[in-house]
Design a protein around this nucleic acid. Sequence first.
DNA 1: CTGGGGAGGGGGCCC
DNA 2: TGGGCCCCCTCCCCA
Length: 558
Amino acid sequence: MANCMVFNTQIASIMEVLANAAVADICKLVDDDYAVFRLEITQSQKENRALRRKLQLLELKVARERVCASRPSSVKIVDRYRGMERGEGHLTGGHRSFVKPAGHNTWRDDQPITVDEGSGTSTQHIIVIESADAEGAGPGVKHERSDGEEDPLHSRNIQTEAAAGVSNSVAMEELSTASTLQSKTRCSITEASGTPDAILKSETVTETQRLLHTGSDHGPDPERLELGPLGCPSAPGSEYLLYGNPSPRMVHSHRDSGDVLESGNDPSCSYTTEMDPDNMPLGLETQTDLSRGDWNQYSSSVYPEGCLAKKVEVIVVDEVTVKVEGDAPPTWNVDETHLGEDHSQGRDFLNYRESLETNTNIATHSPFHALRDCEPVSTSMGPSDSHGRVLFNQVLNSNDRARAQAQRGGATSGNSKEKRFLCMFCNKGFSCPQKVEIHQRVHTGVKPFSCSQCHMRFAQACNLKRHQRVHTGVKPFSCSQCHMHFSHSSSLKRHQTVHTGEKSYSCPQCEKRFSHQHQLKMHLKVHMGEKHFVYTQEVLREELPQDTPAEKTFHSIT
DNA sequence: CTGGGGAGGGGGCCC
DNA sequence: TGGGCCCCCTCCCCA
């Protein structure tokens, strides 16, 4: 008997040793893989940056040729800057939009390049590009930029193709067009570093090109902001925070649905990179370009299988952009923006579980139950649906809002006595389970209320009811001082500021006041990130005194 | 400025 | 009396 016990003890100790050894091996493997993965990520990021620069340079070339061909009057301006390139002069304030750093020449001649042809022919933006290794000319040679004629919206954000509603199909069409263009422009920027594995799939290049355009949809072109006017540092929001953010935000992502629940900061379940939170919308633009099949594919990685059986398509806000193309690394700048969301929700869930373990008095309302209770929702939020894009933006923003509100004063705060029903995603507290269920539709995307006259769906019944006034034309809210009628009570309230002269929104920096929030937001851009833009428009106004759309935009923001 | 959707909070009604 | 449910109001945001 004693021998048996001793034997068992020995067996147990051996098992323990073996288990520890196995764990150590696993950890080592994970660490190794993680390091390799990080290396690939870093390399991919560099490659993407180089590709972007290449695309911009090519675009500039094409635009210049187009201008020369279609608008001879512009040649004078271009030649003028060309003279400056040779050291004959300087653009006012030493205006240099971006500099291609040496050692970032990882692109290749034979890579497919897409060039945005634009829609017009006139010259509005002349931006001198200084390139360290410009085409066939050696260091110091600059390129001119001459954007096509744009509508005012375009003029405000240079290259806001996505904002103009360019669809993916159009982008693909441009891709094919660009192939032809490439043969004309003959990109001859040589690869200096010669990184052997710098070859990216054409899709990745396309993605990069699309990012090039969509990125400016949400702020000044980060490339151009690398060196702001007069050499000022980049404005906040510059994509270059990706690489130089003093307080990088570390984000993680899970690889599969299980990681949603299980991954924490363990590198074995996630990869980490620096991200620029200001570029968050980029991912949305890209994810909406996914085919519906991909959409569903990605959607299947958010909830456990039991929930997936219910086919809730729209719960994928945080996941869809993890697009890994075979041996190519994920398309950075796109994915990483959403990885943070992923991880955030996963972390929230972990916190939630911890709270359950530590506080058994907290009542909860699981969204999984809600999902099971709900009919499968086939919302019209497909990736190719522009409206769906808007909805996803809103969903994403709402997720951020919900989390922010939860942090400010959710159930975890001193208010937990009344709001004891927690959202498992963001920990926000509500007074009753129904509120939680409604709220969690923010995270799940469930929209049980559909309009009978259109394809709109809503998460709240009252919103559907309000929406139906669009069809009925009923505007029950009328202004007592004019003949205006509104379908929204809040619209009426907002409108009445016209009569009262009330200006509720004041600028914290210059004491200016505005009656509408949008006005204040536009005004704040003047103080912050739009300085470069304003400067650019000033230069343009000097150079192009005619009333161009760019000039109108300039006036509109000042 | 307006139109219109997303979402939270509060209150009333019913069981 | 309290919870569930519904509706409305309101704020916020974006186009």
